[in-house]
Design a protein around this nucleic acid. Structure first.
Lengths: 165, 165
DNA sequence: GGTTTTAAGTCAGCCACGTTGACATATATG
DNA sequence: CATATATGTCAACGTGGCTGACTTAAAACC
């Protein structure tokens, strides 16, 4: 163990650094996701429902296939969850005007309400972390996470706040 | 929509900023976790096995209850996964010397091997993101993620690299 | 030394949420 | 008209969570 002291073995330090990052991602995601569980339980919903509510709220009029490519699950998996949400009147579907095969998804007022309750807790969690870390840290947080995301998705994600010149 | 331009409605901007952070966390975790799936599939293992292998490798001689508190699952859930890993000779258990009720877990050579293969892909993913974001961004990434983690766990996580003065 | 507490394991059953594969329907497109 | 596309559906299955009840061994307590 003596030769593994940081400073003596740069490779060790690098691996240690990377593992800490991996763990941080695990712990943060674990605790972040947990924030909404209590509310979800009250409505007999699971995390899959939450993700669906979130992204439909975020991308109004999103189509089923677009949603599938965000969630990266099969349409069969989504259909159960989406079925629940439509049945319980959290989400509505309407056929596209230009292409009537597509179903555009939208939150109902009830859907908006629960989505806001759910994301409010999670937003508070992020806000707390942002506040204590500072603006500069937030910029770094975003940069690194964006680097972890697949190339294809990266473009669209970084779009909204950083419109390309 | 006109009155929602950034600069005119700071609350909107703040919520937008927070939602972007939430999404970034989702997308990054999604893609990060996916990195190891191909290898896991070859060995007929799932992500739960991976998490167990990872944390046992990271905390040699960890006890079952310590592992449970990291993973935040029940012992019944862990027992299946752990049972597989012991049966396949990825992990060994040995009773503690001081307290013989405790089972200390350790990776076998075969366990070390697969753990390195798995984490290697994920480390490469993090390394790539770190490299492209820069050292300062990495510091911010760590600060923010640490802020998202529950208070109790935060102490132990930040310990290793930042020994308190 | 006997009682209680603790660490771990086990059995049984259940649920959430992912998968594959096959097939149906409506609509758009060439 | 033929083909491709978007969606939905039925069925079966796998993983990985959960609760609840119970056991065993060992430590800790009085």
């Amino acid at each position: 163990m003596a030769d593994l002291k940081p400073g003596f073995n740069p490779l060790f330090l690098r691996e240690e650094e990377l593992r800490q990052g991996m763990e941080l991602l695990f712990y943060a995601y674990r605790d972040f996701a947990e924030e909404a569980d209590a509310i979800l339980a009250k409505y007999q919903l699971g995390r899959a429902h939450h993700r669906t509510l979130y992204f439909v709220g975020r991308h109004p009029a999103i189509t089923v296939s677009e949603l599938l490519s965000i969630l990266r699950i099969t349409k069969q998996s989504l259909s159960r969850v989406l079925g629940d949400l439509v049945k319980e009147d959290f989400i509505t579907q309407r056929p596209g005007l230009r292409d009537r095969r597509r179903r555009h998804l939208e939150l109902t007022p009830k859907g908006v309400e629960i989505e806001r309750m759910l994301s409010q807790k999670q937003r508070a969690c992020i806000a707390r972390a942002y506040r204590s870390a500072g603006a500069e840290a937030v910029e770094g947080f975003r940069k690194v996470l964006l680097g972890i995301v697949n190339d294809r998705d990266r473009r669209q994600i970084e779009g909204p706040l950083a419109p390309r010149p």
